[in-house]
Design a protein around this nucleic acid. Structure first.
Lengths: 299, 299
DNA sequence: CTGGTATTGCAATTTCAATTGCAAATTTTG
DNA sequence: CAAAATTTGCAATTGAAATTGCAATACCAG
């Protein structure tokens, strides 16, 4: 499991350590407090969209969580704050400190298109990813992957995208790796092939998708090692995961972003290649040969 | 007008590093408007503490400038904004989202795990993407997508990932959009459905994949509009493409990165949503309803 | 299945920040 | 140097956002 979260931050307002990475402090508070369903949704929205939460007003948070305004207020109060502005102040002091150490800023183009919004947001997500994962966690994850007898990557919806990249490039470099982006009976079948020595990589951002969690738990019971890539440190997935990599996923519209996840996948793949360079080299050579013979590429 | 410190006073901000990149746009506005003494103090405070100014409320700014609240409001109005919140919104969009990445990169530069390498590289890719595409190109591309009768997104291999994100989220928000990530007979069939009014989005990075180019040319001849997302400005694809968005794709190992492409896709999607907000809202609502009924999410 | 408890949503209320009218103070100009 | 014009500060007003009381709903235990 992840190696973060020092003990010293109790449930009572931790107004200390503004240097700590990520939103661990909120995770800590949440760990001690059992929130009701709707309020939990609010907390999730805050953790996943810290940028939004640090300046948005209640109505916007409520909309994101699909909850009434008052629930947002009550969530803040349940967590020990006086109200939303109080929680928001804390959020800002924790979060904004990180994103602007000094008044270094880049002036870019005049017009703000959706594209620049998307790019700047994703740059920020990547930067946060740097902070959110320790070198040890990453190395340990890569070691597990490199030693795996077989690897199954699971991701649904948008999150099938990074999953497919991982499976595609992983097998291109000779790893026994496959993708399961479907649910239902397919997921069952794929999961049942796993046992000790096998690894299941669960890419699960945004809300937990029930079937994925259940499948991961089944694989875990069967002896497989679970690697989770998620935007949350807590939850059922985090519990059973041997390794957990945290990726921010805040997007610009109604959807979350998988950009940081994709980049993390590349990091893992590069590590996997370094772990078995000869295997990769050989397989890639053969692939290129085959591409050539099939005339896949033009030039 | 004009006596003691007339035109130079607004343009010169004493403690602001003149070499560093700053709030040029504010400087520009200030250059045109001669502000009275107290209001000038307010402007200085804003320029020196953009982070503070982007979320603080009037009273705090007033305190920093040692000025009455109303002066802050009037400064904003003198600068052409409706009031303080209006100016603050602008500040946020200009400053908060665009923070320099350099300090974090320095912090993590020492011990480079594959993950930091991947993230750093992708941050650079995203920054290059900012420069590589003009606002006009982007807006024109979005307009084309928003007006399309139907949209087919084509991408193979790793590049199927951003393609699937686009198709998935696009249809989530009600667009008639579909994905073709397979070659051969499938590609032929999909391509043949296209005609005038239809749009084909070709995501083609790295080498040109023969079948994709040929398919795009066929669609083009049939009257469909081609949108290309590529890492090259020239070539057969660029020739037939109505719109071309350029994305750097340098990766860290033997593979190319689709991170920037993914981010660009998000930008396009956000623009598409803005173009048909009502359609999106309705479709998303129905999706959420269905998710609920199917019990997809755990929460 | 039923009664009790906890949670949520709605709407009224309260609170607080932003703005503006007006008078005092400052600066500018003849 | 004095009168006009501009700017500023104070205090009242406006407006909007956050909170809370209450009823409906969902959840849970027996």
């Amino acid at each position: 499991m992840s190696s973060s979260t020092p003990e010293e931050a109790p449930a009572t307002h931790p107004r200390l350590d503004p240097t700590g990475p990520g939103l661990d402090w909120l995770d800590d508070i949440l760990g001690d407090t059992a929130l009701p369903r709707a309020q939990n949704r609010v907390a999730d929205v805050i953790i996943r969209n810290p940028q939004l939460a640090s300046y948005a007003e209640i109505a916007e948070i409520a909309a994101h969580a699909e909850v009434n305004n008052s629930t947002v207020v009550r969530t803040a109060q349940t967590l020990g704050f006086h109200g939303w502005p109080d929680l928001q102040r804390e959020l800002r002091s924790r979060y904004l400190v990180k994103i602007s150490t000094e008044d270094t800023l880049v002036q870019h183009g005049e017009h703000s298109t959706p594209l620049t919004a998307a790019l700047t947001r994703d740059i920020e997500n990547l930067r946060l990813t740097l902070d959110a994962n320790s070198a040890e966690d990453v190395e340990a994850t890569i070691a597990t992957l490199a030693a795996a007898k077989s690897i199954l990557v699971v991701g649904h919806g948008s999150y099938a995208a990074p999953a497919s990249v991982m499976a595609h490039l992983g097998s291109t470099m000779g790893y026994p790796i496959s993708l399961e982006s479907r649910a239902g009976v397919h997921l069952v079948t794929s999961t049942n092939t796993l046992g000790p020595g096998d690894v299941m990589v669960v890419i699960n951002i945004w809300r937990s998708i029930g079937q994925m969690i259940v499948a991961a738990e089944a694989a875990h019971r069967a002896g497989a090692t679970i690697i989770a890539i998620s935007d949350m440190r807590r939850g059922r997935l985090a519990t059973i995961a041997e390794h957990l990599l945290v990726v921010p996923s805040e997007g610009i519209a109604f959807f979350q972003s998988v950009t940081a996840t994709t980049s993390v996948v590349y990091g893992l793949l590069a590590g996997m290649q370094a772990a078995h360079p000869e295997r990769s080299r050989e397989t890639i050579r053969r692939s290129q040969q085959l591409w050539k013979e099939l005339g896949v590429h033009l030039d």
